[in-house]
Design a protein around this nucleic acid. Structure first.
Length: 655
DNA sequence: ATAGGGTTAG
């Protein structure tokens, strides 16, 4: 709340200098706007000195309002200073929204019209904008102007250019700027090293790093961050161990890196190490740990983090809130997710989106759309991510018309840019509904080039509906354009096999072998008593293997009484022929179920996370298990949740 | 009076 003392009393001789003082005390956009209102009410003109703080804040502060800054800048009674232009350009450069770079450029042009000469600050900010937008041609023109105006020896300008060329993929130009420099500082080195990593030249980055004479904490963290972004977690960890001092950022980079690079177990292990060193995690680390829990379906771990947050009174911002909701939802506990959502105090678009997508993936499409409408009713604008959740809800429920309605409203009503992910949802929607021709036409009509994900969605639908003709057409293209993706070959080969084209199926498998594409092995995770256990297909490495296999035999014996017969359709390409028989019965989720039966309280719900899609045999078997043994079983596969209960599945056998 | 390189979510 605004403190009245800032504004009162208003004296009759109040003049603009006093307002400058007031502006300097303001700490939020709201305060600034109220003070500005007072200034206008008092009939004062807009002399630039009064507006400086408000323009700076509006343009640069994360909670600012860049449009407000622009409005004021263009309305000052006397021409604005270079400083004000610089600040506003800086604001647009970091705004990262459509058209913001153009605004920076227009302001730059406007400066010229007003005969204001740009300075070194101006160019530094312009290059930031060009880097953020990867605007190579524009940046090169600014580089020309820098040379003409003799700013190229300014180390700040120079470093911003090094960074600019690096992100544009012009490592040679970046290197040239670096080598030609008479004055280099630690930032120049960090920027070039980051550029090398960005452009895939890890060895050059490491060699430069070893040549650095001055290395502060940021240099180390910068190197770690670059390696992590490039997926080189082993290298990153080596430096993490080696570095002289680790600060909070180092831990964040490593733990979030593991979480983002699909190594959630390593993320949790490092988090534990951090705790044994009595280091307090910050909220960024907790977010990453929650993300790791989501990936593993590690509900106990996730709950522990939630308790920790409450015990330590960690401030729950919108990111942390979304991460908590997402964790519960991805661990199959949609009730806890919704409870967390409804008790969270700040519900912004990300918290809503997490809840909507949680409902959607757990098969509660109706509730998901209701919540979406509620969000809009509260005046919160959806963004591109919220729409992915909405379209996903429609897709799972088979609501084609609704899906198209929302799809159209994205750009029409909310002005949100349509991205590949949204198109992929629509292809999935049509494909799942069996409208394959329409799906193919939809792809053909896309204004952006469809990527492999789009074609993959179409191919999946072909398999589901047994459309061999389209499946072969799409699949043959896909195994060429996405050569390293094992799933494409498997789908195509199965499509051939199912339409009695055994030779073609074999041909696809040969191609796959020739290209040395490895199959990602099916793997299921189950958390029992705080430990995550991992099972592969036909796995015999677990210390309780004998018991587990015996238990599964027992289970099979029982469900056979209720009509279970092993099915083979889905496993045509699962294993080499001779192994097939042995492995069908032992897909990883079955082993996980057996393990769960052995080591959890009877009657408790089992949660299993699988890395690939569940096959129809396992699906059928587990439905029966849920009925015969009166046990709720939740399996999260690559695509959606399966809540098995009383012999039925929440996916309605449609996945 | 302004600058640059390192961190989290849906």
């Amino acid at each position: 709340m605004l403190k009245p003392s800032i504004f009162k009393p208003l004296k009759p001789d109040f003049h603009s200098i006093s307002f400058t003082a007031i502006f300097y005390k303001c700490k939020s956009m709201k305060q600034f706007k109220e003070a500005h209102t007072q200034l206008i009410i008092n009939g004062l003109t807009h002399p630039p000195p009064s507006l400086r703080p408000i323009i700076s804040f509006s343009a640069v502060d994360p909670s600012g309002d860049i449009d407000y800054a622009l409005l004021l800048l263009l309305r000052t009674s006397t021409p604005p200073t270079v400083f004000l232009f610089n600040t506003t350009i800086r604001g647009f450069s970091r705004a990262r929204r459509p058209g913001s770079l153009l605004s920076s450029v227009l302001l730059f042009v406007r400066m010229g019209v007003l005969n204001l000469a740009p300075n070194n600050f101006t160019f530094t900010f312009l290059f930031q904008g060009c880097s953020n937008c990867v605007a190579f041609d524009l940046g090169r023109q600014f580089h020309g102007m820098v040379i003409k105006n003799s700013f190229e020896m300014d180390v700040f300008v120079r470093n911003s250019i090094i960074r600019f060329y690096s992100v544009c993929g012009r490592l040679d130009d970046a290197r040239w700027m670096f080598d030609e420099s008479s004055e280099l500082d630690v930032v120049s080195w960090n920027s070039l090293i980051d550029g090398c990593i960005r452009n895939g030249n890890i060895s050059e980055a490491l060699s430069l790093f070893s040549k650095m004479t001055e290395r502060n904490d940021i240099s180390w963290n910068s190197l770690l961050g670059g390696l992590v972004k490039f997926g080189c977690m082993d290298d990153a960890y080596r430096f993490f161990v080696e570095m002289p001092r680790r600060n909070m950022v180092s831990w964040v980079v490593m733990i979030s890196g593991y979480a983002q690079n699909g190594q959630p177990k390593e993320a949790l292990a490092l988090f534990r190490e951090m705790q044994t060193l009595d280091q307090e995690p910050n909220s960024a680390i907790l977010v990453s740990v929650l993300s790791a829990c989501s990936q593993l379906g590690a509900l106990d771990h996730g709950r522990w983090v939630h308790c920790y947050i409450e015990k330590k009174c960690v401030r729950v911002d919108s990111i942390l809130s979304a991460a908590l909701i997402d964790m519960y939802a991805k661990c199959g506990s949609i009730d806890l997710a919704m409870q967390t959502f409804s008790t969270s105090r700040k519900r912004d678009v990300s918290a809503y989106t997490a809840a909507i997508s949680g409902l959607a993936m757990n098969g509660c499409s109706e509730e998901a759309l209701q919540l979406f409408e509620q969000m809009k009713g509260e005046g919160i604008s959806p963004d591109g991510v919220s729409y992915i959740a909405v379209l996903c809800a429609c897709s799972h429920a088979g609501w084609v018309e609704k899906g198209f309605h929302y799809f159209a409203s994205m750009s029409d009503v909310h002005g949100i840019g349509l991205e590949l992910d949204h198109y992929a949802c629509m292809v999935d929607l049509l494909g799942r509904a069996g409208l394959l021709e329409e799906a193919e036409k939809f792809v053909a009509s896309m204004p952006i080039k469809p990527d492999n994900v789009i074609w993959g969605a179409l191919l999946g639908a072909c398999r589901l509906y047994g459309n061999a003709e389209m499946g072969q057409r799409v699949g043959s293209l896909l195994v060429e354009s996405d050569q390293n993706h094992d799933g494409r070959y498997i789908l195509l080969s199965n499509i051939y096999a199912e339409s009695m084209k055994g030779e073609d199926a074999e041909q696809v498998r040969k191609t796959m072998r020739r290209r040395k594409v490895n199959r990602v092995p099916g793997c299921s995770l189950i958390e029992v008593a705080g430990f995550v256990h991992e099972f592969f297909s036909g796995d015999r490495s677990h210390e309780k293997t004998e018991e587990i296999y015996l238990m599964w035999e027992e289970i099979v014996k029982e469900i056979k009484k209720f009509g279970y017969r092993e099915e083979t359709r889905a496993v045509v390409f699962d294993v080499e022929e001779e192994e097939k028989e042995a492995v069908i019965g032992h897909h990883s989720e079955k082993l996980a179920v057996a393990f769960g039966f052995l080591y959890t309280k009877s009657g408790s719900t089992l949660l299993i996370v699988k890395n690939i899609r569940i096959c129809s045999d396992c699906h059928y078997a587990i439905k029966l298990v849920s009925k015969v043994f009166k046990r709720k079983i939740v399996i999260r596969d690559r695509k959606c949740f399966h809540h098995f209960e009383e012999g039925l599945c929440s996916c309605k056998d449609y996945w």
